[in-house]
């Protein structure tokens, strides 16, 4: 059973499908990582069209209060196991927008971030390094942010509520048919 799980973790690490939440300029260096120079598909990494199909959400740029709602919504739509990568300076500490009234400086208060890539913006080499790192973490079973989110749900929800001023509930049960 353990072997099987290891095999599954290995498979997960070699088939990372990503949802790129391109909120800012950070996504600029992703196309070079995708195309023939670096070719991330070598590792089975592909961009996906919808959160339902994705394994990892890349938050590539500054996070405003408004976009954070969408990010959380997209994250909650993804099937577990799932991972969050805080990509570039802005989601880590606010970057150049750190003193803006609308910018959320730290993404990891609201979502369980598995991996940070520093840089403004991170170059394609850094992206590739990030992906290999993430692959290692997944293969070893170390990247367990999705479990943290379930375990510490109160903490994350409380932070979200503090920020938005209300509970972030996307479906209030009315639409359950």
């Amino acid at each position: 059973m353990v072997e099987w799980l290891k095999l599954v973790d290995k498979a997960r690490s070699r088939s990372i499908w990503m949802l790129m939440y391109c909120t800012g300029c950070g996504a600029m260096e992703l196309p070079p990582a995708m195309t023939s120079r670096f070719d991330m598909e070598r590792f089975g990494i592909m961009p996906m069209a919808t959160p339902r199909q994705a394994d990892v959400i890349l938050v590539t740029g500054y996070v405003t209060k408004k976009t954070l709602k969408r990010i959380i919504y997209a994250y909650e739509q993804m099937p577990a196991p799932k991972w969050v990568v805080s990509h570039g300076s802005c989601p880590i500490n606010g970057g150049v927008y750190w003193d803006s009234h609308a910018t959320v400086n730290r993404l990891d208060l609201f979502l369980p971030v598995d991996l940070y890539v520093a840089g403004c913006m991170p170059r394609a080499e850094a992206n590739m390094k990030m992906f290999t790192e993430l692959m290692d973490m997944i293969a070893k079973g170390e990247a367990r942010g999705w479990e943290e989110y379930v375990k510490n749900r109160d903490y994350y929800k409380e932070n979200q509520r503090k920020l938005f001023g209300y509970d972030l509930v996307f479906t209030d049960g009315r639409s359950a048919l």
């Binding site: 095999l7 599954v8 498979a11 997960r12 070699r14 088939s15 195309t35 023939s36 070719d39 598909e41 070598r42 590792f43 089975g44 394994d55």
Partner: peptide, 17 residues
């Protein structure tokens, strides 16, 4: 497309995942 491309058994990995 002048890329290396994934290993040829990539779909098996995807399905398992």
């Amino acid at each position: 497309q002048y890329r290396v491309g994934p290993p040829i058994w990539q779909p098996y990995i995807d399905v398992i995942k």
